[in-house]
Simulated scan of single mutants.
Amino acid sequence: MPMLEGKVAIVTGAGGGIGREIALAMALAGAKVVVNDIGASLTGLGEGSATPGEQTKAIIEQRGGQAVTNTDSVADWESARRIVASAIDAFGRVDIVVNNAGILRDQIFHKMTPEEWRAVIDVHLNGSFYVSRAAAEPFRAQGSGAFVHMTSTSGLVGNFGQANYAAAKLGVVALSKSIALDMQRFGVRSNCIAPFAWSRMTSSIPAETPEQQARVEKLKRMTPEKNAPLAVFLASDAAADVTGQVFAARNNEIFLMSQPRPLRSAHRGEGWTPELIAEHAMPALRAQFLPLDRSADVFSWDPV
């Protein structure tokens, strides 16, 4: 029996790229799929279009699956509730939510505008909350459900010019962990994937210097469908004991990512003054300081 037979999945941002590949893979695994996509530009600006979502739906149906489209925005509470309602209206239930919808408004921090900040937070972080919160009600009632949230190494590790995106994506990790803790007693699981792929979301990466060009060439070898098997597994009953975790998928590699924990401590029974911190605490802790890494620094080897 296919791993998702009898289940209903919502995949946001499923009109292309990673979202489309996850929607297609979940349909092939037996799920009925709500293909959500507003059909806007990478920045979220301009007129929306139902075409990207309809194209994903058509592929699913050509392969013998079932799907419906939805063009509501994740970035609005009532709109997000309509996304979940569309699954119940079409298929009678919802079992899986993949929070994949995203936009980019890259800008160096000291030039970033409040509008650029809010737009990205609204889609990635608020959108993940809105859709998850809407689905939490049927999940709780039926005693089961799986959330798969897309995070990013831009938030987990760091990157230039993406304060808005990085903050949102690290916030998604904390949101996922909170969902996992709060809803475990209802049989609901929540995990994150940091995907690596050449898609619309990465096509804006600069490729001006030889170093940047080399990085882009590596990314182009990592196609979006490489992330789909992990998403299908995490959504399936085979992952019944997997929750609150953060994974990364990079071509043929799967990583379990660390979560913040104490590295080292310094103790002084009489307490600390700023001077004593400078003299004793910082020298004791400094060996464990983390460098100002970017994702490309940590994942520096060629994908295989």
Rank of each mutant, 00 (worst) to 15 (best):
G6C: 07
T12M: 11
E21W: 03
A31R: 13
V33A: 05
L42V: 10
G44T: 04
Q62H: 10
N70A: 09
S79L: 07
R82W: 00
R82E: 05
A85S: 15
A85F: 04
A90M: 08
G92K: 04
D95Y: 13
I96Q: 03
D122G: 06
D122Y: 11
V131K: 07
R133H: 15
P138T: 01
S144D: 12
F147W: 11
F147E: 00
M150E: 09
G158Y: 14
N159K: 02
G171T: 03
Q184N: 13
S190V: 02
I193H: 13
S199T: 15
I205E: 01
E211V: 15
Q212K: 08
Q213A: 12
L219D: 00
A228C: 09
A231E: 07
A240L: 09
A240W: 07
V246P: 03
N251L: 00
I254D: 07
S258D: 14
S258Y: 11
Q259F: 14
P260F: 00
L263C: 05
A266E: 10
H267E: 13
G271D: 00
W272T: 08
W272A: 08
T273A: 04
A278K: 15
E279Q: 12
Q288L: 11
D293C: 11
F299C: 03
S300C: 14
W301Q: 06
D302C: 04
P303E: 01
